[in-house]
Every structure is written in structure tokens, then in C-alpha cells.
Write a protein that binds this DNA or RNA. Structure first.
Lengths: 210, 210
DNA sequence: GTCTATATTGTGATAGAC
DNA sequence: GTCTATCACAATATAGAC
């Protein structure tokens, strides 16, 4: 057998631990607020190892940001491309979005912050991930006009859908403090109820008769 | 006349220029991403003057953040405390929020970012600004139950209201790129239409009969 | 792959002249 | 109030030993 020798000092999962640590710190403090030292400490490794694996902070962030996008963009794409009735479509989208956000509650602020300081990166990244937004939208528009809801710009509906699902997580801390007495579990419970509540609410808002 | 002497080097509006520059840079890059040098350059002054006026970066940020909050919190409070029908209440709130955000489109990301890294600051600030959230909510809850919309948790309605108004501005750049072909004016136009569209949409969503 | 040591630059902050 | 000079320190990044 060849190549069975392993450096006793090497940690085969170092890269994975770096990614997890970097993801945690970046999402908590933002790109500029995070330091390489902090990420190294969180990963339990020497700071210079970060440079060994990713050369620069910028490249490390790039990788982590891409990771974050890849955790939820494919879900959205699969819903966009699925063949479902408009009602099912709304149900699926709300369910997918809120489930993903319950597991990654920091993503909205993380993405929105990067989005505002670097608007082009995300647009490019979405294209790189192979998402054809025009096609997805065309499908939505077609489905939408089929339900004789004309008169309303379908783009407003898309903004509603995203805002209703994403905003509560973006403003999570203040919402929890003011509306739920600082009880994080109560917030999560409300979001789970929201999965049931939103689709009917949205369909009602556009006078959609099942 | 006393005290008419003015140092020829003095700029009586220096503090104002600092605040404007700091506000612009902080909103664009976030607290950690902004540097004192950059703010000084933007204001066209020497960097050490920032320390002269605000001693530390932290205190400067505190002042700017408070400024930002004070630009829209009072509006919300005045609506919260006004004596209006539920329908008028929704109209007023949407109008006030979107008008403020059209003039300060960067505020949502700015506030949300700070909110996620420093959750307590904003809760404290809201209290300091003299906003009695409990009273405002009590009023909303009462108004809400009067319209026999029981069965829905009124907190979900508040989250809807805020998300529908604030989210599009938080995600402004990506929405503009994907939905409006990168045309910023088209986005603004859509938000102005949204002022008309949202109140009716919200009232419909809760089966409210005028 | 992982460490120590070091280079280099950036940044917040203060002291002191004018 | 505004500037120059300077400080102390933190940050990213690289070189080189093991």
C-alpha cells in the first residue's frame, strides 16, 4: 500500500473546522468586524494556518459567503422550477424559506450586510450558481396571470413573499425583545406557526380562491 | 458687542459636516468597516478633529446611530399614539414608514446590522427615546380585537406590517438588479406604488371589512 | 501541515504647537 | 478649533524552521 503515512500533527478535518469557525464568526460580526485571530481561536488552530488554507481574509470570506448562499439558493431554485399550482407554489416557498431560516437564523443579516457593501458580488454569485432568475420569474409571472389576479404587479407579490418570510429573522433580536419578552423559544414557536399562517394570508391578500 | 471674534480657521459647521460624513460612511460600510480616516476625508477635515469632537469612534458611532433612530422612531410613535380607526392606522403607518425609507434607504441594513451585533443597544435606545412600546402594543391589540379578527395573533400582523415596508429597502440592491433590471428609479417608483398597494393588501389579508 | 518569528501596514487615540 | 507629530497596538500576511 502506498501513501499510508500520515503526519501525526495533521488534522484531516482542519479545513472543515476552519469553515465552521469562520462561518460562525463572520455571521456574528460581519466581514469587517471579524478578525482572523478570532476565527483561528474559534477553530482551535494557529492563526497562520488560515493563511495557509485560504491565503487571504478576502478569499476566506468569499468561500464562506458562497457556502451560505449554497445552503438555501438550491432550495429556492427547486421550488421555482417545480410544476405546481400557484397555491402549492406559495406553500412550498414559505415552508422552504422558513425552515431554512430556522436552522440558519443569522443568514439574512449576514447576506443583507454584504449585499449593501458589495452589491455586485451576490448578483454575480447567483449567476455563477447557475440560477436562471429570468426563467424562474417568467414562470411565476405566467402562473400568476393564469389566476386572473391581473392589476397587481407580480413583482410586488414576490417582494411580499420574501419580506414576510425573511424580515422577522433579520430583525429577530428586537422582535424577540419587544413582542416576545425576550423569549427566543417563543420567537421560534411563532415562526413555526407562521409557516401555517402565511400561505393562507398571502393567498387571501391577492383574492386568490382555491 | 462681546464675543464677536471668530477664529478665521474655524468652521462653524464642522460638527454638522462630521455628522453627515460619519452617517454616510457608517451606513455604507457598517461600524467595523468604517475607518476614522475615511470619515475625516469624506468630511474634508483632519482626522484628529474627529477625536476632538467625539473623543472615540465608539462615541461617534453612538451619536450617529442615535441620529438615525431619531429620524424615524418619533414618526412611528406619533402614529402609534394617534386616535384613528384600524384602517386609518394601517394607512398612516405604511405611508410614514415608506416615506421615511425613501429618503433614508440605507437605514434598514444599518440598523439591522448593528442590531445583530449589539442587540441590547437598540432596546435601550428605544427606551431612552421615551417610547413606551408596551402601551403602543396594548393600544394596537385592543384596536385589533375590536375588529373581530380574533384567531390571529396580532404580533404576526405587526411583523407583517414591518416586513412588508422595511424588507424591500433592506434588500434593495438585489431586488433592483433581479426584478427591475438594475433601474433604481424603477425601484423607487415601485415603492411609491407600494404605499397605495400595501394598506388594502394588508386589510384584505386579515379579512377586514371597511 | 503546523508552528515561531517577523515584516508591514492600518487604526484609534493623545500631546502639544499655533 | 485646527493642525503636526507621535504613540501604542492590532491586523493581515509572509518567510522559514520543523
Amino acid at each position: 500500500m502506498y501513501n499510508t503515512y500520515v503526519n501525526p500533527d495533521s488534522h484531516p478535518d482542519t479545513e472543515k473546522r476552519i469553515r465552521e469557525a469562520a462561518s460562525k464568526v463572520f455571521q456574528l460580526k460581519g466581514k469587517a468586524g471579524a478578525s482572523m485571530q478570532e476565527i483561528a481561536d474559534e477553530a482551535g488552530i494557529n492563526r497562520t494556518l488560515l493563511n495557509y488554507y485560504y491565503r487571504t481574509k478576502d478569499k476566506l470570506f468569499e468561500a464562506i459567503f458562497r457556502d451560505a448562499m449554497e445552503t438555501f439558493v438550491p432550495y429556492l431554485v427547486s421550488v421555482l422550477n417545480s410544476d405546481r399550482s400557484f397555491s402549492e407554489y406559495i406553500h412550498e416557498m414559505v415552508d422552504t424559506l422558513i425552515n431554512t431560516l430556522l436552522e440558519n437564523p443569522q443568514i439574512p443579516v449576514f447576506v443583507l450586510q454584504e449585499l449593501s457593501t458589495n452589491p455586485m458580488r451576490m448578483a454575480n454569485l447567483i449567476r455563477e450558481l447557475g440560477v436562471d432568475t429570468d426563467q424562474g420569474l417568467a414562470k411565476f409571472y405566467k402562473e400568476f396571470t393564469n389566476t386572473d389576479l391581473a392589476g397587481t404587479d407580480p413583482r410586488q407579490i414576490i417582494i411580499n413573499l420574501l419580506g414576510l418570510c425573511i424580515f422577522p429573522f433579520a430583525a429577530r433580536s428586537i422582535i424577540t425583545v419587544i413582542l416576545y419578552n425576550g423569549d427566543n423559544q417563543a420567537f421560534d414557536k411563532a415562526m413555526i406557526e407562521r409557516k401555517e399562517y402565511l400561505p393562507a394570508m398571502i393567498l387571501r391578500s391577492i383574492n386568490y380562491e382555491k
